[in-house]
Nucleic acid binder design. Structure first.
Lengths: 229, 229, 229, 229
DNA sequence: CATGAATGAGGGTTCATTCAT
DNA sequence: TATGAATGAACCCTCATTCAT
């Protein structure tokens, strides 16, 4: 986290530095980001940078933190009421909010994506220990409420499921870009179609009638229940 | 891909270079890998390297390709017969084979992981266009056979589902390491427990009775069907 | 030496600065010491530092001075009476006191050692001109008293001899650490054994009977007397 | 030690680099030496430097090694015959040779001095493990021969004594410069006078008649003998 | 076809000191 | 008197690529 020196800076200068850093971290994978470029863009001296932050990682964590806070605030404002609609519809809303965030804060969103997919595992873990609660627990929270209302299978492992949901949500976006790369986020309909497919799986599963017909008596049941917990 | 000069090399020398490169790409995220270290380990001249490969990326793609081929071969040999057991049990076998591959070819496995999680998106896409078909279609193939046998819901989008399955499988391993970091792959039981949870979700979905009771008459059905094909 | 501003400081703050500086100068060779670290540890402002001291060297000299005074005071208190025992036994006492000082004031002792061995010759000379008298004259004083009592050869150059004694004393400790590095000062017996060897040489010299037998008539005598003065 | 790359260089270029490095290491304490200055003076690229040497320390060790070899060669050539004269006269010759070396190879001599007095203890130890045998054993060798001829007290610890002799020799020079700083080595007579004083002490010891008269019966003898071996 | 020396921009980081407030 | 932000040169080191031999 920034040194006091940075926090004491005039707002305008602070913002200049944050902007320059966000630009850089959104534009390059962490290992390729350059302090030199950041300070040049922010128009501060090299030495000053190290008066503000311990090192590059310190700045990075700070920007990640800002991005996370911004996202959380955005979500909280956009999704004030979960009560009226069912869990899977809420998931849809959350997803839409995520897309919207990507549109409104492409830089922060991009930074988060780069981190999430970052190859620097140890850095990632360090960041996670700091920020994970905020983002990951979001789904867990929703799941818990849904469980209370009986909207989800009572026996599933909520924490595990929330993790899978997170990953699946990301996968939907990835799949979209894989199939329609470079189209941007213009055609929301296609994206939503994929989301529906994903939600269908999560909701109903994919086992077909043939499966139950053929295997239901051969101890599969036990196998299944062991997966509940 | 390597230049002809490389292919003309004696097998022993080729292997030395491949080994050195695999070591390097397994040890560092791509952006941190160093040609200097590779040529030193392989004991070849700097100039020679550039007569064998266009550049670092060229070598990287080549190693990725080898890793992919090795993995595919390993799977094909280990999973010769899918006919006798049901689809979800096969998924389990495939998963186990993946773990086994990790154990037998930790370097290649590690390289694949680093790539998959690599922050260098453009590089990744370049690689994907080349190698994804090989690994990803594996699940698709299985799904298609399962569909023929009616083991999976007839209306789901097989390609999309195979993508989700791939991601979920990876997520299971990630979750395991997140929860039991540094335990290695020793305790397969814990891992398999997570796998069962994942398969349970994929098989049955997570919608609970409360969901159907409350929302079944409010047009949710349509929503669901739109998620099928 | 410190500016008046420093001397005006409340005792507690002065001490904080002295402590921080002593820590730093004991921990690093002078050229590697950092004002940044010192002010951080002392919790004073960068600007304040330069209002208290001219620069790093100024502070360094001041700390060296304090260390010297402390050492001298320690010795004077511990060795109040030289009268009862012979000169060489006093040397032993002095040596022991030195070891004791090392134990009681490891920081100051370490600073002195770093300075003594410091590669920055010009800095060293500057310091010496200031502080050497205090420590070096200690041996000279002892030697003078011993000379008066006839305990040492009447014709030796006392000043020169005191210098050699100083160096030899240091060498004994160096030799000990060279032979038993990392043992610390725990085993005083070994150290004292080396000291005895040194004192033996200083007391008796190392010339053997064979030397006198073979060369006594060949003008060696004159050579010897020329060394007395 | 240098990489093969360096050894393959044309003699002229190698020498240019060695010269530039020797200049630098003679001019500054190790911690203040600058690779930048060295490469500028040697007129080589920054990258080239790191093709030749691992790092600054690697180069430093190399230069130290060269200096040591040069000194040893110089001594061996200048002191071919120890047989005809007594041990203490040989010491004188050795000392003179050292002075002469200082005059002929002031740079190498200066580097050695800086190292010897260097405050960077760990670096020094590293170097010592490499080069100490060559220089320190020189005195030991002489002492052993002298012991065989009975020229030195049969019971002294030769290794310990050789260490003390080394240190005393250095101290003589230090003392000279302390008393006649900035006179250079012009007035050899003064220096030799100090040497004689030192040799006198080493030869005869400094105990006076008064010492033996007063303390000889009070168990001092045992103390002395314990200092022998 | 093999070689390996040459390159120099760029990396992140530390530093003692100044000076306006 | 106290402050602490600003400075920018200097530090060591790494890098992928070129090219003359």
């Amino acid at each position: 986290m920034p040194k006091q020196t940075f926090l004491n800076l005039p707002v305008e200068k602070k913002q200049r530095i944050i902007d320059a850093a966000a630009d850089e971290f959104a534009a390059f994978p962490y290992l390729k980001t350059s302090i030199n470029r950041i300070i040049k863009k922010a128009d501060i001296a090299k030495g000053s940078f190290y008066q503000y932050f311990e090192n590059k990682k310190d700045l990075y964590k700070y920007i990640i933190d800002i991005a996370g806070e911004t996202k959380l605030k955005f979500f909280r404002e956009r999704l004030p009421e979960y009560k009226k609609i069912d869990f899977f519809s809420i998931l849809k809303e959350v997803f839409l909010a995520g897309i919207e965030f990507k549109r409104n804060y492409p830089r922060y969103s991009q930074i988060g994506d780069l981190l999430l997919k970052g190859e620097n595992e140890s850095l990632k873990n360090e960041i996670y220990d700091m920020s994970k609660p905020k983002t990951n627990d979001f789904y867990l929270e929703l799941l818990q409420k849904a469980a209370e209302k009986g909207e989800v299978d009572a026996e599933i492992d909520l924490e595990f499921t929330s993790y899978m949901l997170t990953e699946l949500t990301i996968s939907v976006v990835d799949y979209y870009f894989k199939k329609h790369s470079s189209e941007g986020l213009e055609d929301l309909n296609k994206m939503m179609a994929y989301l529906d497919k994903m939600l269908y799986i999560v909701k109903n599963g994919i086992a077909g009638e043939g499966y139950y017909a053929a295997y239901q008596d051969e101890g599969i049941k036990e196998n299944l229940s062991s997966g509940k917990n």
